[in-house]
Each structure stands twice: as structure tokens, then as C-alpha cells.
Design a protein around this nucleic acid. Structure first.
Lengths: 338, 338
DNA sequence: ACGCGGCTGGAAACCGGTGTCAAAACCCGA
DNA sequence: TCGGGTTTTGACACCGGTTTCCAGCCGCGT
């Protein structure tokens, strides 16, 4: 550990007999540069094992090589998946990931985020649902000079990048699967009002029922807020009706777990008496009993793509990237009781 | 948005009629400063709504106001809890949180982290288990000039801060609870070899059994790696013995869920035929059926304290902070079958 | 009245990069 | 050989703070 100091751009310049500016040009891959000079400087850089100081760059460029992950997401599995996906992309770059969990109901939300972005001079920000559905927030980030990627929202904003999965089709497929298993009385638990993902999944349910030639019984519709308790309540409600459903689709896994609780409390056997399907394939899906049939969407891969869009805005087209979801068939959905 | 520019230290200096240096002294609360001057400058700062530029500070100080969270933790719930706890503490400060999930088995781990810390010029780093048990890693961080907080490791390193819960006592209490419920054949699934937390919980089990006057049957001991599958396998093994246990303590919730699966597969009814207790009180504990009796430790509060130690090394004593865990009694542990 | 040490506060250099702009070097045909 | 146009390169200011070093001012002892 006798290493004196990290080499600076000045060291490189001196050793290769050029000016700082030229070294800077090499680093930034400026095109107007003699090939021979470039190679000479690159050799010195390699020899010294020189790495530009990000803090100095940040100061000069008024922009930090940080990408911010802003979220208010109850789904730990998903948030962590996103973090890992982003890291996959930026691990060997100069970028770093800074996270900022927030409370989306805080009245000072916009101010806080404004301050945060300005302070850290973020390069780009990534918004997770449900925050990604907040247009005002996206605009703020953009106005502050960040590239923005919104995840999982289904509308194409003209200025922000978008990375989404196709929830609607996936739910439709899940419903088709239930129909194929012989279910006709299928209950549906929607996500909270105002969430685009919730709306998409709802539309998927309607489409799926239509395609299967089934009618939708309004008595079999309920709404939750993506949290366990709300799924539990909705399940109790649905199962307490005169002619209860033989299958329930919940708009996310957590609510599906709630439904399972409700069923168990009533002495129903799952899946024998009631089939359940969830959405997200979070850790809980595979770990409850019976293992939950659910829809998996490739969080980590999506985050990788999103990070690419953030860190190489020039490379990535400013268009929506859609990722296919996949129905994971487990034991919680079986043939309808006859 | 007609705001011209963010005010700089020069603006403050000019408006208050002093030099940059004096302003800098005010910001850094230097003690050798005339009270009148200080107040004058502070007034201008408030009036301009001036915030020092962190990038410039980072450059000058050779140290960024970033704290790094380094982890390789399969427990999303816990990692996110830590992130939130840290944010609780640093939200209104100039600090930001940068995360770095890593692979603890990577041969380049130390190099990667070395580069990472050096590049970002981290102020402090926080190590989560199992990484927090890596002495070499902790030393590296320290040598690089970071304050270090290790979470959940039970040994006091003389140079790093430590924030831990008292796993041993908590497990002991859980075992006492099972004994009180009339269980005598109690199985134990240990965590992976080499994990301090695993060792602590093991010791807690032994102590608890001893205190309850029960003997430990080696046939009822198994080992997992904190993941679902290993708990599942261990459960199958334990339940397949000639005289299976009536209760099983798993060293974390995920493995407990695995045990539950194993029991269900064998047609056992939980908790009627088998009581199960887990550890961590992650989301899954409350969401499986039956709800899991488990040990809860105050992750978020611990992370808050840890962040305090990191950002105010001068305030916080360099000693271990211990947090009490609590047994959460749910439906998965009941009176032993007679 | 004078000299001296302790505080305050300012000028200028510095941290390690990037932008501007003009000079130097090079190319080619006339 | 020269002029004009096109690269290529370097000098220098700048980003917004901190640090070093020194001058000015003060009160105080003699």
C-alpha cells in the first residue's frame, strides 16, 4: 500500500508530452484527434492505470455520473430486482446508483426530489411504479436536465423513455388458462384506482373473459390497493357472496396471498375448492402453500435496458421497450370442482 | 422557472461583503469567527437560499458525501428496510445513499469494491451480513478512509462500528416458548456454516433447550443456507425420521416457509401436527398460511443508528449498539399434540 | 507611546477536470 | 515557394468550493 497518490490528468499529460486538454480529448473520445497522439496517450493511461476523477468531472460538467432510483414501492422484491438490473449495466462504468425511497403522499414530494436532483446533479433518474405514473414528477426531472426512464407505465410520454411489460396480454392469458381449466365463475381483484398497471390488468381481465366467451358478474369484482390486507378483505367479500367464484385472479401476488388467507379462514381448501392466480411472481408466490400460479415479468432485464437508456441516451432510441410477461403455472390453479 | 442560476459561495461573499473564505468558515462552523460576521453571512445565506455545491466540496475535500451500502443479501425485505432506515437519517442532510449489490463469491470482489470506493470517494460504507462478517473487506474500506459500520455481526471489531441485534437471546426465548407449549421434540435448522448470525442462532437454540431442561437429539438437527430450497430439504429430512419433531425452529423465515412446504407435501397439518418458528419477520412470515411465529428485529431502527454512526463519526461512540429482538407470536406455533 | 501576541479575515493557490479560442501544423494546388 | 483551408493542439480561464499564508487590527503590558 505504498502507492503514493492516484495519478491525475496532469501526470498523464506530462508523461506523454501533451497538454491536459489533449488527454481530456482522449478520455472523451473526441473525434478530432490524431490517431498517433491518441495511441501514445492511451499507452500512458494504461501504464499509469489512470482513472479520471469523477468529482472533478462532475464539477466541470455540472453533472454527476450518478443515476437516481426514485421509488415508493411496497414490493421489496421488485425494487431489489431493479437495483440489481441497473448494477448489471453500470457495474463496469463510471456510473453509480443512488437510491431515494420516498413517500408519494408527502406534500413536499416534488420539492424534495427537486432538491435531491439538484444537489446531486443527477445524470438520469429512473422512476418505478407507481411514481412512474406521475407526469408532473417526470416533467420536473426532465426540466432539471435528467434523462428519465419510466418503468411499467403504459403510456408513451414524448420526452421520457419508457420500459414496460405488457400486463394486459398477460392477464388475458391467465384468464384464458382458468377458462381452459373449466372455471366459469372467475372473481377479479383490481389494483388501486389511478394506477396505470391496475387499469391495464383490469382491461386484460375484461379482454380475457370476452375471448373465453364468459360473462363478467359484477358481484365477482372487487378492488384492493396492492397490499396484503386489501386482498384479504376482498377475498372475504368475494367468498362470502351467495354464489362464490371457483377461481380468483388478484392483480398482484400480495393480494393473492390475502385471498389465500381468506379462503383458509373459511375452511376452503386451495386449490381444490378455489383456484387463485396472482401477478408479479415475487418471492412470496413460490413460498406460500400451495405455490401460486402467477405472471412473471422480467424485472431485472427490464432494469438493465432502462439503465442502458439512461446512461447512453444517444445510443438508445427514445421509444418504448416492451417486455413479454409469462404465465407461471403452479399448483394454486387447477381444474374447477364439478 | 425563470430562476437564473443557483447562488454560489461567491454570491454570498459579495452580498455580505466578506471573502469566500469567511463564508466557508460559516458553513463549516469554524469556531474562530466573530459572532457578528457569522450572523451577517448567515442572513445572506438564508436570503439567497444558498446551498453549497457538493461536487465542488467533494473535489476540494477529496471526499464525497456519499455513503455506500454494500451487500450480497438474498433478503430483499431486509435490504430495503436498511435503505429506508438510512434514508430516514440522511434525508435532510447533504448525504446521499449509493448502493452496490455484489457477489460475495466473486474472485474480484475486493478489487471491485476498492475501485468503487476510490472512484466515488465514499464517506462511509455500511456492510450487511453476510458481507459484514468479512474482516478483510472491512479493513479494506477502513484503509481507504471510510468509516465503516458492520451490521448484525456479533463481534466487536476495534476499528469498525457495529450495530447488531441479540440473536442468541431471541432464539433462546423462542425455544422457551415452544417448551412452554409442551413441545419436547424440537427440530432445529441452522443457517449456513461460517455465518456469524447462524452461529448465534445455533447457540441460542442450545441455550434455550438447556434452560428448558430438554435434551438435544442430534437426529433433529439440520443445516440450510438461509434459502427456501434448503429449508424445504431440511424439513423433508427432519419429518422423514422415525420419530419426527413436533416443532421446528428454522434460522430464518425463508427456510421456515420451506419447512411448511415439506410438511404440507407430507399431508401434515400446520400448526396442528407441526409447529414452526422462523426468524426475521420478513413480509413472507405474515403472508403464508398459517401466519408464522417468528423473531422480529428492528432493521429500520438499526439502520437509522448505523447511518448516524456513519455520518457523524465524532458524535457517535465507536461502540457496539445492540437492539433487542422480539418474538412475534402468530398461528404457526401451538400446543403440542398429545 | 511602543512592541507584541492573538484573532479575524482576505488574496491567491489548489483540487482535477472541461470549454473557448487562437496558434501551430499540415495538406494541397497554383 | 506561397496562400488558403483544414486538422490538431495548447494556453488559459473556469466550475465552486477549501487551504495556506499573511496582513491588519485589537488589547495589553511596560
Amino acid at each position: 500500500m505504498a502507492k503514493a497518490q492516484k495519478p491525475t490528468i496532469n501526470d498523464v499529460a506530462r508523461l506523454s508530452g501533451v497538454s491536459k486538454k489533449t488527454v481530456s480529448r482522449v478520455i472523451n473520445k473526441s473525434p478530432l484527434l490524431n490517431q498517433a497522439t491518441r495511441e501514445k496517450v492511451e499507452a500512458v493511461i494504461a501504464q499509469l492505470d489512470y482513472v479520471p476523477n469523477p468529482q472533478a468531472r462532475a464539477l466541470a460538467l455540472r453533472r454527476n455520473f450518478l443515476i437516481g432510483l426514485i421509488h415508493d414501492n411496497p414490493n421489496a422484491q421488485m425494487v431489489l430486482g431493479v437495483q440489481e438490473g441497473i448494477l448489471d449495466t453500470i457495474r463496469s462504468t463510471e456510473f453509480a446508483l443512488v437510491v431515494r425511497p420516498v413517500d408519494r403522499h408527502s406534500p413536499t414530494l416534488l420539492d424534495d426530489i427537486h432538491r435531491f436532483i439538484e444537489q446531486q446533479r443527477l445524470y438520469g433518474v429512473m422512476l418505478l411504479p407507481p411514481l412512474s405514473e406521475n407526469d408532473e414528477l417526470a416533467r420536473l426531472c426532465r426540466d432539471l436536465g435528467c434523462t428519465v426512464v419510466r418503468m411499467g407505465s403504459a403510456r408513451l410520454d414524448d420526452e421520457a423513455h419508457l420500459v414496460a411489460s405488457n400486463d394486459q396480454e398477460a392477464v388475458s392469458e391467465a384468464v384464458a388458462w382458468l377458462a381452459e381449466l373449466g372455471h366459469t365463475r372467475i372473481g377479479f381483484i383490481a389494483g388501486p384506482d389511478g394506477f396505470r398497471s391496475a387499469r391495464e390488468r383490469e382491461l386484460g381481465f375484461i379482454a380475457g373473459m370476452g375471448r373465453a366467451g364468459l360473462t363478467i358478474d359484477p358481484a365477482l369484482l372487487a378492488r384492493g390497493n396492492y397490499q396484503f390486507e386489501s386482498g384479504h378483505a376482498a377475498g372475504q367479500h368475494l367468498l362470502g357472496t351467495a354464489t362464490p367464484p371457483t377461481a380468483i385472479f388478484a392483480s398482484n401476488d400480495e393480494m393473492a396471498a390475502g385471498v389465500l388467507h381468506a379462503a383458509c379462514e373459511r375452511g376452503l381448501r386451495v386449490p381444490h375448492d378455489l383456484s387463485i392466480i396472482g401477478f408479479d411472481d415475487t418471492a412470496i408466490a413460490a413460498h406460500i402453500w400451495p405455490p401460486l400460479t402467477t405472471v412473471r415479468w422480467p424485472i431485472r432485464a427490464m432494469a438493465r435496458t432502462a439503465a442502458l437508456k439512461l446512461t447512453r441516451p444517444e445510443t438508445a432510441a427514445r421509444d418504448a421497450a416492451f417486455f413479454p410477461s409469462e404465465l407461471v403455472r403452479r399448483a394454486s390453479a387447477v381444474r374447477a370442482p364439478s
